[in-house]
């Protein structure tokens, strides 16, 4: 009824590569080799601790900093496992137009440790403009791709990223339609997608609601933005909100704010790592239920959330939230923005009144690094005692809340609850989320 999931927060070894410089295939394989060695070692360690499946990060094998042309030597042609069976370790045939050294190595790592293995690399698909009007001028599609190998080393899943993040568009192509990639194991049904895909419905949400997967495999290269877009908080909130287990492997590059990986259960965080000081990543394992049965929360629309006049407006990651500050030690306050109204009932301890807190509401189209519609209710600490700092990055707090309850009248059923504590640590299983929707804690 259970299995052990593992993630490795890998720091890609990329050497002194120059951005945009085109290297040979041999040089690319030399560059990838130390990363594959880490994958092999960590897989062996995970298996020694009885892991059934291990996930490695997006861009884990060769890092960023490539262009459409300079990423080519790192890529391999990845056949569609839905149309042909292939075990690269047992059958390392040449797959034109590329060799398959990386796929073979990954396959053998999975086979030698008898474990499901998930990795991310570039897929090179040849095309002919005469037969395919969509075929790019350079006669190839390039995809940001997740691959999954079974414990025998067979390639069983291939997923092409649908929602490329900003400058990724110069490197990779977008599939013509979202791919819904699932596979069954003795411990449940899995789906997979990549990084920025998590913000959108297709395929992320539909994998859960339409394809009924139990678990998500999530290679990512996530750059933390506080307060909401911090990797562990955001990804675990999605797992909780969707009612699935979620294995998230982020690359570990603290200088670039790429920190935060974990194994998240449908009912709370199981294990996570977000050490900003550690030079290298970390392996994390946790036992998960094979077939989660999350409680169903009906989001009835709330009425009468009280006084709704805004006090001030402040920017939170490009969005203008309406805020009302917490002036008393305890009380009930509310704020609205467009159709969303939020209400908070709270009580602080007496010695923590000098830090500014506010409740905020946002209902609108977010457009900063992508375009997607948000409805948010939040109770947060402001960065300073100035109102315009509310929504800016802050990671430290001294204020103890004896209790709080946050309610909102959302128009959507897709709500992801999160609670973040001092030092930006996610809170684990010490809050409740219930009908309303209502987020509360003592």
């Amino acid at each position: 009824d259970t299995f052990i999931g593992a993630i490795y927060a890998h720091t890609p070894v990329i050497g002194s590569r120059e951005t945009g410089k085109i290297i040979t295939r041999e040089q690319a394989l030399e560059a990838v080799k130390p990363n594959l060695a880490v994958y092999e070692e960590q897989t062996r360690i995970a298996k020694s601790q009885n892991a059934d499946i291990i996930v490695f990060p997006e861009y884990g094998l060769y890092g960023f900093g490539t262009t459409r042309d300079s990423v080519v030597p790192y890529m391999e042609y990845i056949p569609d496992p839905q149309s042909e069976s292939w075990n690269p370790c047992l059958d390392p045939r040449q797959s034109k137009p590329t060799d398959n050294v990386i796929l073979k190595t990954l396959s053998c790592i999975a086979k030698n440790s008898s474990i499901y293995l998930v990795a991310n690399l570039g897929d090179y698909q040849y095309c002919e403009p005469a037969q395919d009007p969509e075929c790019p001028d350079d006669k190839r599609y390039q995809y940001n791709t997740n691959v999954v190998f079974d414990p025998q080393g067979a390639l069983i899943a291939r997923y092409h990223k649908q929602k490329l993040f900003m400058s990724e568009i110069v490197r990779y192509d977008v599939p013509t339609s979202p791919e819904y990639i699932t596979f069954n194991t003795p411990f449940g049904k899995f789906g997979t997608f990549v990084c920025f895909d998590i913000l959108f419905k297709e395929p992320a949400v539909d994998l859960v609601t339409e394809y009924k997967v139990n678990h998500i495999l999530f290679p990512t290269a996530w750059m933390n933005v506080y307060p909401f877009f911090s990797a562990v908080s955001f990804h675990s909130a999605w797992a909780y909100g969707m009612g699935v287990n979620f294995l998230s492997a982020n690359i570990h590059r603290p200088r670039n704010r790429n920190v935060g990986s974990g194994v998240y259960g449908y009912n709370g965080i199981k294990e996570y790592t977000m050490d900003h000081e550690a030079p290298n990543g970390e392996l994390k394992l946790a036992t998960l239920e094979s077939r989660p049965s999350p409680k169903t929360i009906q989001h009835t629309k709330l009425e009468n959330l009280g006084n709704t006049s805004r006090e001030f407006v402040s920017d939170l990651f490009g969005d203008k939230f309406n805020f009302v500050s917490l002036k008393e030690y305890e009380g009930t306050i509310s704020v609205c923005h467009n159709a969303v109204c939020c209400s908070a009932t709270y009580k602080r301890t007496g010695n923590s009144h000098n830090e500014l807190y506010a409740i905020g509401a946002f209902d609108g189209l977010h457009t900063k690094e992508g375009t997607y519609y948000l409805q948010i209710c939040t109770l947060l600490k402001c960065a300073t005692d100035e109102p315009e700092s509310c929504g800016s990055k802050v990671t430290d707090s001294k204020t103890i809340f004896e209790h709080f309850t946050l309610k909102g009248n959302f128009s959507t059923q897709h709500i992801f609850p999160m609670v973040v504590l001092d030092k930006a640590e996610p809170s684990i299983n010490d809050w409740e989320y219930s009908d309303g929707p209502t987020l509360s804690s003592n």
């Binding site: 490329l164 400058s167 568009i169 110069v170 977008v174 913000l199 959108f200 419905k201 949400v205 307060p227 909401f228 955001f234 969303v340 923590s352 189209l365 457009t367 992508g370 375009t371 997607y372 519609y373 948000l374 409805q375 948010i376 209710c377 939040t378 109770l379 947060l380 600490k381 802050v394 990671t395 707090s397 001294k398 204020t399 103890i400 809340f401 709080f404 946050l406 909102g408 959302f410 128009s411 959507t412 897709h414 709500i415 992801f416 609850p417 999160m418 609670v419 973040v420 504590l421 001092d422 030092k423 930006a424 640590e425 809170s427 010490d430 809050w431 929707p437 987020l439 804690s441 003592n442």
Partner: peptide
Amino acid sequence: SLQKPLLTAAMFGRWYEMDQLFGQRPKTT
């Protein structure tokens, strides 16, 4: 109960149907 000072509590809602109403921003670099 919470074991540490609170930094942020949030309910982060995504209204996917509204994405389609507004459409996706053209892809840029």
